[in-house]
Design a protein around this nucleic acid. Sequence first.
DNA 1: ATCGAAGCTTTTGCATTCAAAAATGTAAAA
DNA 2: TTTTACATTTTTGAATGCAAAAGCTTCGAT
Lengths: 221, 221
Amino acid sequence: MLHEDVVGRIRAILLDGEIPPGARIPERELCERLQISRTPLREALKVLAAEGLVQLLPHRGSRAAKLTDKDMRDLFEVCQGLEALAGELACERITDAEIDAIAAAHGDMVRHYRDGDLIQYYRGNRAIHEAIVTAAGNPVLAGLYTSVTARIRRARYVTPMTPERWAVAVKEHDAILNALQRRDGVGLAHILRAHLRHKREEVLQAGFAETEGSELAPRFA
Amino acid sequence: MLHEDVVGRIRAILLDGEIPPGARIPERELCERLQISRTPLREALKVLAAEGLVQLLPHRGSRAAKLTDKDMRDLFEVCQGLEALAGELACERITDAEIDAIAAAHGDMVRHYRDGDLIQYYRGNRAIHEAIVTAAGNPVLAGLYTSVTARIRRARYVTPMTPERWAVAVKEHDAILNALQRRDGVGLAHILRAHLRHKREEVLQAGFAETEGSELAPRFA
DNA sequence: ATCGAAGCTTTTGCATTCAAAAATGTAAAA
DNA sequence: TTTTACATTTTTGAATGCAAAAGCTTCGAT
């Protein structure tokens, strides 16, 4: 198995929540599961630590990273900035075909909204945001976006998502599509920022709290 | 030596240009120099590869990353976005003391400008930008900024920096300081974006070209 | 002379091994 | 009974060793 694959597999395990935030990462066990020895596993863990998904405690092994409220806020802030930038760039570079594809995805998403299918809605939602970032045509930006959103998603926050809130989100998405179609970069950036800000408020208000103790205190000692 | 230190040492070697872009990274040699074995060295190289400073060619070792014009443009674009975000956030959170410190740094920088000391000017310039990012109070943002600017700086571009261009840059910095003092986040973001855009044009116009062949072609095969 | 193939050398990537640090368990003392 | 000191076990972090892959060199054929 290639190095990049090992990283990907472990990342997936973390994102799936199979190893919950704060939990120790069982080296020996993962080695058996992936059929590799500790050397490549540890290389992957170091990479994931640099990405922020894993915390390395010197001489005490590695744990799945835990996010504080502050971390979450910071990640959302950066995510806003990246999406706004992506929106502006996308408006300069997006092709008609790409816009059509996003419009189609938007239609699907609205249908899932009408069906009340939150899971599918989220999936479509994410696809649209990713498509915009892709349309920006900037791999560096895309890479950072992927990494930041992965860390956010990692949190597996469960927001109640009131009907009102959901309706607003869909309305915002209408505006997003509209701005894209008009290729209004500045407008799109504003909408995306507001959209993300709302999402963040939602998440943080829902009482996001992954660190319930000083379990990781040694790290800051 | 701690893992993080190894990463830092190698990063420094790359940033100092001691291993030029595109050059192979001599594992054995670095091991001797850092007095470590290949295992921790390779862990560090994998991390640096994830950061974009190193390219791993499977079964063919690692090289110092080379930047194309496109890479450079992408990095500058993201840098603009990050700085603009940092500027906005900084205006919300910066303390009077921090503003005073930046004002002082600004004064120093202008003095270096008057003295025609480009090196010191650059140093002061960088310090100001970093101070703004720090004032944003967002470690995630700061981390990404550090990584992106490192990759840009790695390029060791040599811009002629005409007197006109230099004068404009200093004027822009006046405006930056002014916006900060007025805590005008939106204004600051605009100025920073323009400032970086100019810098990017300058660099790219100077005919930035780190990849003069298809030396790295195998990677894309 | 140039191109290509075969064998050798070097380097890479990973498994294994080893020493040191932390965690755990046990027993003795307060 | 609780606490502390000590010994044991486990786990971590790094060095070494080994198989496989890429790179080089040399030699022969066209």
